[in-house]
Amino acid sequence: MKRKVIIMGAAGRDFHNFNVFFRDNKDYEVVAFTATQIPGIDDKKYPAALAGKLYPKGIEIKPESELKKLIQKHNVDLVVLAYSDLPYEVVMHKAALVNAIGADFMLMGAENTTIKTTKPLITVCATRTGCGKSQTTRAVVNALKARGLKVVSIRHPMPYGDLVKQKVQRFAELADLKKHKCTIEEMEEYEPHIQMGSVIYSGVDYEAIVREAEKEADVIIWDGGNNDIPFYSSDEMIRIVVVDPHRPGDEISYYPGETNVYMA
């Protein structure tokens, strides 16, 4: 019997976990995503064009505030937490609520959620949001380019618009920012790469994204978001984790930043 699942997210890690683990998995039925953190991303649908053949009508995206009602309505067996930069206390409050209603609560690890690239990989992650990942990524890109290598960065998702159109996004010129109807937040991330003559990808389907990036890269850089763990792995891999000296202790008290520390 299929296990009914809700994925709690914020239009990033949640879609990725679905794509790589749940989308074609007949043992599970994802009945809904819940959304928080980012305004305007709830009360939509994860479209059928991205959700795969098991979900011809797509999957509803509801506010996280409706989680209890959704679990009860759909007789949900499993709730997956799939967003980042959460204090451990908050994570366990969410787990307690889910367990009290009767469902299991899951935090997914790297084994089931990373995609293997054929290229050498450097991942830049952090223990908290705002530690300086983007600046670090650009420094790594410049250092590798100085050695004559073709470097392509892939940014943690920020898909706040038309998800189908944003499946695979490539940014190499400033005109691409307009082409993809980028938000100010997205422009802040992509424009510095473009100005330094570097290519950066983002989007929704990170399997499709990395296969495109591999066509033009000697080395791939993962530019992480928040304090999330990487979406990719490689046989040739370096992990960089940025820690904020002004927030001591956060590296062992925020999910999933501590995971990044252990992985590094």
Rank of each mutant, 00 (worst) to 15 (best):
K150H: 05
P120D: 09
A143H: 10
T118W: 01
A126W: 10
Q135I: 03
K150P: 05
K116C: 01
V124M: 00
V140K: 02
T123K: 03
T127L: 10
A126D: 02
V151P: 02
K145C: 07
K133H: 03
I122P: 05
T129E: 10
T129F: 08
L121M: 08
T129L: 13
I115C: 03
A139G: 11
R128E: 11
R128F: 01
V124P: 01
A126C: 11
I115M: 06
V152C: 13
I122M: 09
K119C: 02
T118F: 13
G130T: 10
V140Y: 00
I115P: 00
C125I: 11
C125T: 15
V140A: 04
R138V: 14
V141R: 00
N142M: 15
P120K: 10
T117E: 00
G132A: 05
V124D: 04
R138N: 09
A143M: 08
R147L: 14
I115V: 12
N142E: 15
T127N: 10
G148H: 05
T127R: 13
R128V: 09
L144P: 00
R128H: 10
T117Q: 03
C125W: 03
R128M: 09
T117C: 06
T129K: 14
T137P: 00
V140I: 14
A126G: 06
P120H: 13
V124I: 12
G132N: 05
P120C: 11
K133Q: 07
V124R: 00
R147Y: 09
I115T: 07
C131M: 14
T136Y: 06
T118C: 01
Q135G: 06
C131I: 09
R138F: 04
T114D: 03
T113P: 08
T114Y: 03
L121P: 04
L121N: 02
N142R: 15
T127Y: 04
T123G: 00
G130Q: 09
S134H: 09
T123Y: 02
V124N: 00
A146L: 08
A146G: 12
G130P: 01
S153H: 01
G130A: 08
K145H: 05
S134N: 13
A146N: 07
G148D: 07
V152D: 12
V151H: 08
A146I: 01
V151F: 02
K116Q: 04
N142V: 15
S153A: 15
C125A: 11
S134F: 06
G130M: 07
T136P: 01
T118P: 03
V140G: 05
